[in-house]
Write a protein that binds this DNA or RNA. Structure first.
Lengths: 327, 327
DNA sequence: AGGCATATTGTAACCGATTACATTAAAATG
DNA sequence: CATTTTAATGTAATCGGTTACAATATGCCT
């Protein structure tokens, strides 16, 4: 690979001039520019971005930290981030943290040594203080870091949960259980809160209708089994995420209860799979792609030292009514 | 951030000595080493990897090019690649190509300028000559680049397809249609070939039983509809991938045909969703994670200038028998 | 004591760009 | 015409490491 020096020699100018041509900075005579461009062309010269980064301290590279790209929520998010970054000439490093604080810290360590310019964080393993210690701009998605300093993109979890439950009531379901997510996750807490907001004061309500899960399908299936055994009169399940909802559907179908007649299921997230199963899953859909794209745009603004209109963006969930609830 | 010079000053030695300590290269007196380590500790010094890369020409960064991370096949692959790379201290840049040659070329261009050390390619948009022009080691997964020079990880598509079809025959299905993948993809061609190997000479066979698709669910559903309309006596569908198989199931269920009694469906790939729908999809599963991990290991060997045991690894698909075929 | 291998450390070149500063020529100004 | 601006270019420092080479010290052998 040719370097700037070879180009400068071929063009009969100094490296500074070549650099000026490359960056359109400073004065360069038209004729000189032409000579340089021709030399660049001839040698098929491409600037060495590592060298450039060393003097610039800019790498046009960002990190994307997700718990696990295999979790169906994250591919769409990753795609959005990557699309926007690509559009602005940035490159995206993918990191799977498994929600392990150690792994995250180690990753961030290396990424900072590599001069990444920003980080999109979908995780709750790290404390706000640890995140604040990062040297690069960070945007957190979904699992809010409880820190004013870190910009976030979140959804109105509580309100969405309320809507979902109200929707079930409107459709005539009378005893609604909740499969809640892992207790350490804020969004699980909020969704549960929203559920409670609606049902708490209803006469049939009783805390046993809330079953804890881990956002995985298996758990959802198992929890549903126990639930129905203990409370056979439950006629609707509001799951805190789609995977658990799918687990619930499996159990319900195995038990031979017709969906949506005898049992309704509503999920949360709006992942693609929900539209593939039959009956299709009714769900409170998050605008996953939009959230990723928004976070990416915010991060870029921060990297480029522009100010953000708002530190905390809350996007709206939307109910997608499909086959697991009756009309 | 402290740099090596500050460390050397605090330790009262030259930068060369610090570098020797860092890299455990050359001679360093025990006492000196201790002084240096203490200085590193005090300043919380971390080497600047960009600077190191500039003199090394090693970035410990690789690229992973997939058509679209949102396609359910790729997250597992990406996870495998990332896991192995992480294990060996490499960092993974994610690229979505949408199978567009232009996008791929542009990406590779930038990645090379950034000194990536290797590339894992899941794509067929580029010609072998274009791939050979890359300056870094490449491993191709799945969609074989028809070039002896590029190491590949593939599956025995043809054989797997044969097995799948034979399995259907064994189970007593008598008229098996095939939803084939996009004509430009080698694996679609091979799977179709495998199907033909078995059924071509059977009396009921007839080319109209092969319907073209694009590996997407929608297409699979639509193609199945047309298929059943034209050939109502078809009692089994072998789809070239799981997404189309899922589409097929949807159509079949909508038409009220009981699965697996009146209609069987077998997919190909073994993506996670197959186990979530009901009935669960019988499929020729590729060891997706293993393929990614294997490709990653091969790439690392190439980067580290070790020789490969074999340029072309063919891994075995395996039938997972589930609910869409009868016992 | 002289010669040689080994150990320890430093100086300076190098990786490949950017850029502050200096120099000179040409154009604009009074 | 002298003076100031603007234009054009080059020299060399810098980013933060690695490493070839040189210099010196030490121990061992004959």
């Amino acid at each position: 690979m040719a370097n700037i020096k070879e180009v400068s020699q071929l063009a009969g100018v100094s490296v500074a001039t070549v650099s000026r041509v490359l960056n359109r900075s400073g004065y360069v005579h038209r004729d000189t520019e032409q000579k340089v461009l021709k030399a660049i062309e001839t040698l098929n010269y491409k600037p060495n971005l590592v060298a450039r980064s060393l003097s610039n301290k800019k790498t046009r590279t960002i990190g994307l930290m997700v718990p696990d790209i295999m979790n169906p929520f994250f591919p769409e998010l990753a795609r959005a981030v990557e699309d926007v970054m690509q559009l602005y000439g940035y490159t995206t490093i993918l990191c799977n943290s498994d929600e392990k604080a150690e792994k995250e810290k180690q990753y961030v360590q290396v990424l900072e040594q590599k001069y990444i310019e920003g980080l999109i964080l979908v995780s709750s393993a790290l404390s706000p203080e640890e995140v604040n210690r990062f040297e690069v701009p960070v945007v957190a998605i979904d699992r809010t870091i409880a820190s004013e300093k870190v910009p976030t993109v979140t959804v109105n979890n509580r309100e969405g949960a309320q809507q979902a439950v109200r929707f079930l009531l409107d459709r005539g379901y009378r005893k609604i259980a909740h499969l809640r997510g892992p207790s350490q996750l804020l969004n699980a807490e909020e969704r549960c809160r929203g559920y409670l907001d609606i049902v708490e004061k209803l006469d049939w309500f009783h805390p046993g209708l809330i079953v804890s899960g881990d956002y995985e399908m298996k758990q959802g299936a198992k929890a549903t089994e126990e639930l129905i055994q203990k409370h056979p009169d439950v006629d609707a399940i509001f799951a805190a995420n789609d995977l658990m909802a799918i687990g619930a559907i499996r159990t319900v179908q195995k038990l031979g209860l017709p969906i949506p007649e005898k049992m309704a299921v509503v999920g949360y997230d709006g992942i693609g799979i929900g539209g593939m199963i039959l009956p299709e899953l009714t769900t409170m859909a998050q605008p996953i792609y939009d959230m990723g794209a928004l976070a990416a745009r915010m991060l870029i603004r921060m990297i480029e030292k522009h100010s953000l209109d708002s530190m905390h963006h809350e996007v709206q969930v939307q109910l997608i009514e499909r086959g697991t609830t009756r009309r």
